[in-house]
Every structure is written in structure tokens, then in C-alpha cells.
Amino acid sequence: MSHKFRIFQINERSILVEFDEEINENLLNHLLYLKNKLLTDKHELILQVINSYNSLLIIYKHTINNFYEAKKDLLEQIYDSKIVNILDSPIKKIPVCYDHDYGWDLELLSEDLSLSVDEIIKNHSEAVYTVYFIGFLPGFPYLGGLDSSLFHRRKSQPRRQIPSGSVGIADQQTGIYSLDSPGGWQIIGRSPIQLFDSENPTRYCYLQAGDKIQFEPITKDEFEDIQSQFNYNKW
């Protein structure tokens, strides 16, 4: 790996490896490769590894008594990592209804971005997105790959309640609220599928870092159909 990085001890049991680079898929590919490698090769020492756009947080099972030792270990793992493309998973289709009843901020974005609502829907649903990581809420995917015509800052005042399934835009990112939650993203539609289901212990999280997804526009009727099927047999 040729990226510049730093290895930083956060607390008694955690180390942050942070790369000095812009958000991009090559870096994500490296991070996920390294994450899997650490979890496989060092599973007796490591509890959890969390990736974000440009860093890995490594939580150890026990207090780190010798930081230099741990750092040396990590350096070996980093320099030893190969470039393997692990981001070639099949594209998951996520149905989204861009009706005004669900896309609360479509009009606002249309005005601010000088695009028609149809153009917003087209630009949003044509792109293929990459799940960089899950954060903010259980099951909430941070998606990269948003068309630059749709970049828009967050709301200055977050809304108190955004319904689960809502699809939003914040700066260069798009994402899906996996649960009902307060939030400040600009809402352009809603998906009837459930991204997080605590009652499904084997697959409680529908998406994971590295997945590829694409939004599929659906009508309000289709939304309701899928939602009722979902409630019936959990997709």
C-alpha cells in the first residue's frame, strides 16, 4: 500500500489507522481488504474493526500494553496487503418512490439546483453507488457515487422525525434512513424495504460496506405493494 497514513492510539484498547487521502474506491478497497485480513489473522487479539471513508478503528480485546509492538504488527499487515478488487459484488436494486409525499425536499432541491424533479430522479437513480460504511444508525449506509449535479448541503435545522426508508442527500453523499430518526439530510424519496431488522438474527443488516446498489424508481402503488409484502414475509 502506498498511501500516506498515521497510526494513532485512541484509548486503552483502540488504535486508529487513518489515511491521508480523499474519498475514493481504491482506498475503500484497501481498507476493506485490510479489515478482513486483520479480523482473520489477528482474531485472537482483535474484537471489532470499523471502517469509515479513510480510516480503520481497531478495537482490541485487551488493554494495549505495548503500543510499539501493536503498531509494528499493523505496519506489517499494511505493507503486506495486496491490491485485490473486492468491490465487484452484484448490484443490489433498492426500490424508491420519489413521490412528493415521500420526497419532502424535491421541490427545494429542484429550485436550488436548477433541475426539474424528473432530472433529479433520473440523476439519482441512474448512478451505481458504493456502500462505504454503515454508521449513524444501525443499518444506515453511507453511499458514495452521487452525481455532482445533486450535491446539496444538509438542512440548517434537523427535522425531529424522518421515517425509516427515507432517502436523503447531504453534501456529496446519499443515504437511506434505516430507522425512524431525527436527521438533517435533504429527503428526496422513500424505499419500502427494511434495511435493518433486529428480528432476523442471521441477516439483521441488509447492506454492508463494499456493496454496490442502484435505486429503482417505483410508483406509490408499487411502494405500498412492496411494503405490505415486506411486512408479510420480510422481503
Binding site: 474484537l47 471489532q48 474493526v49 470499523i50 471502517n51 478495537i59 460504511f133 454503515i134 454508521g135 449513524f136 444508525l137 444501525p138 443499518g139 444506515f140 434505516s178 435493518f196 439483521y204 443488516c205 454492508q208 460496506a209
Partner: peptide, 9 residues
Amino acid sequence: RTEGMPQGI
């Protein structure tokens, strides 16, 4: 929990 952070938990 000792797992689940990568799923946002």
C-alpha cells in the same frame, strides 16, 4: 456488545 459496530450498532 462486542460486535455490531460495523453494522452501526
